[in-house]
């Protein structure tokens, strides 16, 4: 079973993303409410995909992407940025740092589902 990590400080958005992924099939879904939690979870298991917000407490999503892409053990993990319409510049930076795709909040379920299908080859 593929594992997906959702990094997002809003509990509502987290469960929304989880519901959208669950609709797609059986996944091991792990939630991180903060960037720090994500840093701790990363070594705990193999992830096939990370979805991350940009503006969060402690570290921001860009810093997380930079960390993942800069670490030999994680750099293969694809990342999807999930953030608000206003963060155009932030999205650009995230993509430049190595994120695979981005989704704008408020998102539509098929949008995320389509991306995941494509990225995970399912």
């Amino acid at each position: 079973m593929k594992s997906i990590l959702i990094v997002e400080d809003s509990a509502t958005t987290r469960s929304l993303i989880r519901a959208v992924i669950e609709e797609l099939g059986d996944f091991n879904i792990v939630e991180a409410p903060t960037g720090f939690d994500a840093l701790k979870l990363l070594p705990s298991q193999e992830f096939d995909l990370v979805l991350t917000d940009i503006n969060m407490p402690d570290i921001n999503g860009l810093e997380l992407i930079n960390f993942v892409k800069g670490n030999p053990s994680y750099k293969h993990i694809p990342l999807i940025i999930v953030t608000t319409e206003r963060s155009e510049e932030d999205k650009k930076r995230g993509m430049a740092l190595g994120a695979t795709a981005y989704v704008t909040k408020p998102f539509k379920a098929p949008e995320i589902q389509g991306l995941i299908r494509k990225i995970l080859n399912i």
Binding site: I54, I65, D90, L97
Partner: peptide, 8 residues
């Protein structure tokens, strides 16, 4: 600079 969010 790359990793700074717009706000930062």
């Amino acid at each position: 600079l790359m990793v700074l969010s717009e706000y930062e």
